[in-house]
Nucleic acid binder design. Structure first.
Lengths: 206, 206, 206, 206
DNA sequence: GATGAATGAGTGTTCATTCAT
DNA sequence: CATGAATGAACACTCATTCAT
């Protein structure tokens, strides 16, 4: 039994190393410029070993994606089922998305880039995104019902705007030196998403 | 001389045909799935001819990008130099960006997808974007000075939010059946960008 | 025009060289042991060149097969449409098969070996054989109607026996030093096919 | 000792299972499409175990061949040493060959396909065949001496014709739906081998 | 200048074989 | 001994680029 679990442990460690190397290379070069040979080389194993863990390059990418996004998935489910107002849910959602997407899982952006246009290859990844969209839609609809979100905006547009603001912004943040701190940045994004860029109207004098 | 310019004209026509075909194929298949052979075939010339106009696949893509964004570039310059308020400038900017990015130049998205991470290859394209960002930054700073934009938001963040909202949203619009009309969509994006998703406060009763 | 046909000629010459080299290697090593790389090497061209002439290894094999068997095909059609008795037709058929299969086109045997069990890969080749079988069946049925062939034998069995005798025998002849001359061998095969191995009964004394 | 022989027994059982699985897969897919991994999987052992019984894929195939043909070998020896006429011996030989080759040991055909051209790999298998040929040659020569076989036919040709008729025909029978029953088929093959396809001459009226 | 066949490095993938556990 | 993960050479095939015509 101990024997078994030792082997199993090694296997998982190796798998982890492969995923790590893949993520690194993906970030350095992008999907198409990263070859299985390079991944193997970086891990320090033979090419064939990769195929013992993942049945194809595509499968490796999907596995990487799943690993990367499992936590996010769980977090989103949690937020969705909280007993708080929509505004707070969306706030938490932005926090969560920013945290996972930018800080912990930048591989997201690369895969997204590759996935948008290659529907067939990354069908599975798309479903992940659609799941996320559905959860957020429900929250936004809740907020409209509460009267706190602008009911004249289509929910779908609101969802994409959320992604658009976060992904675009954080991606830049990740790849470039930035003057703005992470916390400030997230605060600004929330501000824009909730109130836009218009200067706040001064509270009417009482 | 006249002979020369006739030849030159034919050359330019050919070049135009190549760019056209490239754009089509890029939209149909994406960058990596489009081969020089296919482009040549669609134009109806030999592969070698492509290389007489563009020294590499990459150079062809950059040339395409430049052609595609020349109009946008001009339009942005025009808006930047208008004698109107910042709010109006940004409104026009959103109209313009939406128009060019989604309606006229969807190739943008493909190139952007390919370009984000491959810094070296698409350096030239990045400069285009940086130019655009600079113009928009100036406008936003103007708006802050006017007191109509939220001065507590870093201009850079505001710029990226603008791109984020437009690109993400319109890309989806381009690739999927959509319930929202183009005009409504642009209206919603402006609304979100200026006011966020919060429900408008009712005008204080007089 | 002359220019055109020069290039075309060179192309065909090269194609011929590829087919030649393929045939040689097929005979030396068999289908699975012959790699596209080896073929290219023997021809003295790059691997890619092979693919400009034949879209896959399989296609190359089929093309080789077709080239090799075109003459046989024509010859069989001719025999089938002759205005002579069935016995003579079968005699000619054996001559023809022996000539083409053993002397001129030994590649046949290799392809047959590969084709029997890999139905899907070599469907096209199988159809060639079925065409041949059909022609021979008609002749044999004719012979039965004439009363000269044994009507109690199923035609199908007779066809396969014809192939069996010729292919098995000639294949050996090709690959081994042989005491029997080619002409004698063909004579013996005809003898066996028509009369079996039983000693001829002496003509009854008058 | 008893322990030893128990282990030995298990070892042999395992070996038998491996050979069985190999035979099955060979029939289902052919030599090149059958991997050591698949064989191991079907047996339910690890790949490494295969190599404890057979030092290579090739050795496994040869061992399978030997096992498969041991019975045939014995049967042929028996027939060869019988005290009956050559005609009867050949008749029995055809029965035996048909029985073993088609009914019990179709694996023969696959191996033969693979073996014909790869002299080096299957040298050992070839020797088996040569032994068979030698025995049959002796019988045929005996028949010639008896005056019942056509002495003008070279014995070697007669041997190959025997193989040719049986193998070609039965192979087809094995792989295709057949109208002819097995017994009839064997009868037809004997008929052709002994008398050819010519219609039997009516007994002279007396 | 136009052509398109030739090039060859590169890709993802397979699989017989080995060997540490 | 059994195991099965690791190996790495080999394979079929692609495609941006070159260059003789």
């Amino acid at each position: 039994m101990i024997h078994q679990s030792l082997k199993e442990k090694q296997r998982q460690e190796r798998e982890e190393l492969i995923l790590q190397a893949t993520q690194e290379l993906l970030l350095e070069r992008g999907y198409y410029e990263t070859s299985m040979g390079e991944i193997a080389q970086r891990v320090g194993v033979a090419k064939g070993t990769l195929y013992q863990h993942f049945e194809s390059k595509e499968a490796l990418m999907i596995a990487l994606f799943k690993r990367e996004f499992h936590d996010l998935h769980v977090a989103i489910e949690n937020i969705a089922s909280m007993q708080v107002g929509a505004q707070e849910k969306i706030t938490l959602m932005i926090d969560t998305l920013c945290y996972h997407l930018a800080e912990k899982h930048p591989v997201f952006f690369i895969i997204r880039n590759a996935s948008d246009l290659e529907a067939e290859i990354h069908e599975e990844i798309k479903e992940y995104f659609n799941g996320m969209r559905a959860r957020i839609s429900v929250i936004l609809d809740g907020g409209k019902a509460e009267g706190i979100f602008n009911a004249s905006l289509p929910t779908e547009v609101m969802v994409e705007a959320l992604f658009g603001i976060i992904v675009s912004r954080l991606f830049k943040n990740f790849h470039q030196r930035q003057q703005v701190t992470y916390e400030d940045l997230v605060g600004h994004l929330k501000c824009i998403y909730f109130h836009g860029i218009t200067a706040p109207t001064p509270a009417p004098a009482g």
